[in-house]
Design a protein around this nucleic acid. Structure first.
Lengths: 162, 162
DNA sequence: GTCCCTATACTCGGATAGCAAGTGTCCGAGTATAGGCGG
DNA sequence: CCGCCTATACTCGGACACTTGCTATCCGAGTATAGGGAC
């Protein structure tokens, strides 16, 4: 059960987009350059963010991606579900209904106990993810990163948006 | 991010093994028959349970699998980690250290904020899974299943163990 | 009748193909911009 | 000098190969059992 690398990329991109002025946008190629990842592949994931409504796009010169709502209203869960889909990792195939001890369908009125336990864990996971917003991440990065690195990032952004 | 079907199979097998007398064992072929799944493939996952120390094996006639400790001391997390491995689904590749705003390694003293958030969610997921034991599942199945289905299962088990 | 031995059949275990999903890439559709032209 | 028009170049978006890991299977190694034979 491995999560796509795209989730990490998308989350970092959202943090960067959070510091872009609302009337400007950042092309996929620039975001890829900033993170040192393949531009073509990152574009694929950014499209997923766009489909999920997390980012807006503008075509043509000075176009690119921008957050479609405040960073404080975009959660990690939104990003993960945009990339990975919103289906639970565990899929119950109802194997209890097969084999020699199977019964008619109408006798299975309650959900499989294993299914229930898995869903509980999945809910806890999603609940925890929804407690962190892009704004939280940005704040944390501001605290964690060295002043030098922050300055370099700011300079880069200024040049790109110029 | 899809979990292996083997997790579902392994969990169901553990529940069945929980009702097998401690001095008896159940072959993989019987477990497969009971659940209506491919025997050869199920065997692979049972081997994973054995490697993780959740079940013990006996070779030869009247051999098979049995739980290596009481069902109340085997959690869903044990089963999931036996099949899927104990590595978190999210793997941080430290892309923050790449690109134009990268800094020397010594400046990254704290963990990536996104990494931390993902770990929090992963911990919550695992904590929830570890709150359910095989004994809990067995109890729940006893409550949920129809008396008829339970009887059929009991008869099948008696015949197999005879 | 009892004990021992051997052959048997049954079990797990790891090594081996097949397939689906994620990974990575490319080119076409659409649009804001910049420059040139006419008024 | 100002406004309009056109050509340009830049952007996203979906369609196309490739690789990794899950799915599925098989055959060999090891052992408890059952039966037969000797005492």
């Amino acid at each position: 059960m491995r999560m796509s690398d795209g989730v990490e990329w998308a989350a970092h991109c959202c943090v960067v987009l959070a510091v872009v002025p609302p009337d400007r946008a950042l092309p996929a190629a620039r975001l890829a350059e900033y993170h040192g990842v393949p531009a073509a592949y990152l574009a694929k994931h950014l499209q997923a963010l766009a489909r999920a409504g997390l980012v807006e796009t503008t075509k043509g010169p000075r176009g690119g991606y921008r957050l479609s709502r405040p960073a404080s209203e975009i959660t990690m869960l939104d990003v993960v579900e945009a990339i990975e889909g919103d289906e639970p990792a565990f899929r119950c195939t109802e194997i209890r209904r097969r084999g020699p001890s199977a019964a008619p369908a109408r006798e299975y009125r309650t959900k499989c106990a294993i299914h229930v336990a898995m869903n509980r864990a999945d809910d806890a996971w999603r609940r925890e993810l929804s407690n962190t917003t892009i704004a939280d991440l940005l704040r944390q990065v501001g605290r964690d990163a060295s002043p030098k690195a922050l300055a370099k990032g700011a300079v880069w952004l200024q040049e790109v948006l110029a």
